[in-house]
Design a protein around this nucleic acid. Structure first.
Lengths: 123, 123
DNA sequence: CGGAATCCCGGGAGATACTG
DNA sequence: CAGTATCTCCCGGGATTCCG
């Protein structure tokens, strides 16, 4: 009786065994949490500024991640038809629902670092 | 005045610009959140059971992730000197502090999937 | 049973250069 | 300014085999 609830993502037809997997697909990885953190902090941000604040990201990667976030409905992309071009990114309403998680991640990371520091002094 | 606070992880001497990065190093990646979710759900779990529940993970990867979690103080490894061997994994007290984040991730993932489903019906 | 060791491959991701 | 395009390389990680 291997009764298992199947979870399916209708966007890409991916199958999951646990909602955590789905969440990781959407907001996981090396850059997305940092992008989301930036967007949460600044409300609205331009491409170049974003790249500067995400130390070491290549334009290729940044664009890729932003497109995915956009497709998943977390991020707005607003383009101004000017020269030179100007593009602003911001969180959608749905995108804002991840902010508590990012903040929790940030808090936990800070505690972790502090703990590491404490442990190091003791030994 | 590029005044930037540097965050250093004393364990591996890595440098971060934001605590989120540190958190991702410790509990990020493809498997760790799922491992932590399993440990949170079952309290104590043996290696084999863990591998079965994490669909598709290779022993190599599972062991690697578990060792890292152990080194970071999130996971206990208890070995019974028997034949056949028996090894049990569980969360440390510090490891339990990530449970809220994992749960939040799970809840958010479920909402995301539901949202995708709703959007799909509309169009 | 719970791993360790070895081999090996694909593609994720960096570097660089270019463009509307 | 905000991205593409192309090339390349490295290594994450799967498969397999073996061990205490």
């Amino acid at each position: 009786m291997e009764e298992e609830k199947k979870l399916i993502n209708v966007r890409n037809n991916k199958e999951y065994h646990c909602p955590v997997e789905a969440a990781l697909d959407v907001i996981g990885g090396k850059w997305k949490p940092l992008i989301l953190w930036q967007l949460k902090e600044t409300e609205v941000i331009r491409y170049n500024r974003l790249q500067q604040n995400l130390h070491g990201v290549s334009p290729r990667m940044l664009t890729k991640q932003l497109r995915e976030l956009e497709e998943d409905g977390l991020v707005n992309r607003k383009m101004y038809p000017e020269i030179p071009p100007k593009v602003e990114y911001s969180l959608t309403e749905f995108g804002k629902t991840v902010s508590p998680i990012i903040e929790a991640l940030c808090d936990w990371g800070a505690e972790y670092l502090e703990r590491q520091c404490t442990l190091n002094k003791k030994e």
